[in-house]
């Protein structure tokens, strides 16, 4: 088992109880999708998994090791093993696409080398390879802010690949893209999952995408898990349970 969550709770200092006794396991090679209304705690959950946030209580066991409260160098090594892709891409706008991808490898460079931007030829070759995987190696020299949304997200995926991650997290990676682009970006996640066997945990909004890509689904509502299982088992009753009575099927399905 790659990842094991037990009774995970997260309470923000503002008092919001964003995760309540969340427990689940993730096997190696899974494509786990997390669904739920906005505010249900998806981002909080993903950020606790790679420890951008520290959970209030509960345990997270990653590759047999408790990581819920690790700090310092140990935490940095965890970050290196778990990559993350964000809804807003979070690229460095003013730098080239290639440099953006290279930042995925910062953890294995000395501080001095990275500040002087002395990347080894091997790293540069790897970065180009990562760009090739997401199909935009020809954009390598362009500035990141000249790209379209879909291209930016592919660069962000290439950056995460540069880390050679054991686990890849994606927080609503296609939520700010149009449906066609969203689908094409999701295909790259699928490719990474199938080709490299990288475990993926991804939060999504549209059920059509969930059905197409998820090997398993977890639904959150107000910080609690309300469904665990196969995407095709989400029937109308469950749908209303997850998204509330007023939500229309068209919007999300």
């Amino acid at each position: 088992m790659l990842l094991q969550l037990k009774d995970l709770n997260k309470q923000y200092s503002s008092g919001v109880h964003a995760l309540k006794n969340v427990s689940f396991n993730v096997e190696e090679g899974e494509f786990l999708v997390i669904i739920g209304l906005s505010g249900s705690g998806k981002s909080t959950l993903l950020r606790c998994l790679n420890r951008l946030l520290e959970p209030s209580s509960g345990s997270i066991i990653f590759m047999g090791k408790e990581i819920a409260h690790i700090k310092g160098e140990e935490l940095r090594l965890l970050h290196k093993q778990i990559a993350m892709v964000f809804q807003q891409f979070n690229l460095i706008d003013r730098r080239s696409v290639l440099t953006n991808v290279l930042t995925g490898g910062l953890a294995s460079m000395s501080t001095l080398d990275s500040v002087l931007e002395r990347f080894t030829p091997l790293m540069i070759q790897q970065a180009r390879k990562c760009l090739q995987i997401v199909g935009i190696e020809e954009k390598a020299e362009l500035r990141a802010d000249t790209l379209s949304g879909g291209q930016k997200q592919r660069v962000a995926i290439a950056r995460s690949l540069m880390q050679k991650p054991i686990l890849l997290l994606a927080d609503e990676p296609v939520a700010s893209l149009d449906p066609a682009t969203a689908n094409s970006v999701m295909q790259y996640f699928e490719k990474i999952n199938k080709q490299f066997g990288t475990t993926i945990i991804c939060s999504l909004h549209f059920l059509s995408l969930v059905r197409k890509y998820a090997s398993r689904v977890i639904a959150l509502k107000d910080g609690e898990i309300v469904f665990k299982g196969d995407a095709k088992d989400i029937n109308d009753v469950l749908f209303r349970e997850i998204y509330g009575d007023e939500s229309s099927d068209f919007e999300i399905k």
């Binding site: 940095r76 290196k80 979070n90 460095i92 730098r95 930042t103 501080t111 990275s114 995460s160 540069m162």
Partner: peptide
């Protein structure tokens, strides 16, 4: 956003400043 992203790659504090803040 970029700070969070660079931090999530396992970069150290100085690398985060150089790549996510300085630009």
């Amino acid at each position: 956003g970029p700070i969070e992203a660079i931090q999530a790659t396992g970069a150290n504090k100085i690398q985060i400043i150089w790549y996510a803040i300085v630009p």
